[in-house]
Amino acid sequence: MTQDHLQKYLFLVLGLFAVLSALMVVFTKNPVHSVLYLVLAFFAITGEYILLNAQFIAIVNIIVYAGAIMVLFLFVIMLLNLNKETEPHKNPYLKFAAVITSGLLLIVIVGSLKAADNAIATPYQGGKGLIENLAEVLFHQFLLPFEVSSILFLAAMVGAVMLGKKDIK
């Protein structure tokens, strides 16, 4: 019983952490600080994955998102020398409209989900997120998409290099 309470508190603390750092990503002026707050949000989401007993996804989330993608963001920010607060002034009415719109979207989605009955919230069977179960599904059921994603990566790599070249003959 106390373990259940501990899980709930962990969920609430991590969720609050994720939401606060996501808000700071949006509202911080300096892009470098935004990137660092986004890394914090990703770590909080990784904690939620561990609560869900999805260890493989948690590790991959840290390696891919907090490691690779955020380093790419920081690299581009440093390359373009954007690490200063040079946000041009936006119409305050537009900012007001943005906050109102997203708040309304949140209310609408949560309200419609309240009405739905979640009949699928069945008791949980453990260990689905462990790496051997995932490999079983990935390399039997989803083998073709897995191979096709390599073509996607090749296309993205060629596209990025082509875009980055200074002058294409």
């Binding site: 999805a54 069945t122 949980y124």
Partner: peptide, 10 residues
């Protein structure tokens, strides 16, 4: 995780 189906994580 709640459904007990690993396809979602894939």
């Amino acid at each position: 995780a709640y459904h007990g189906d690993a396809a979602g994580q894939v």
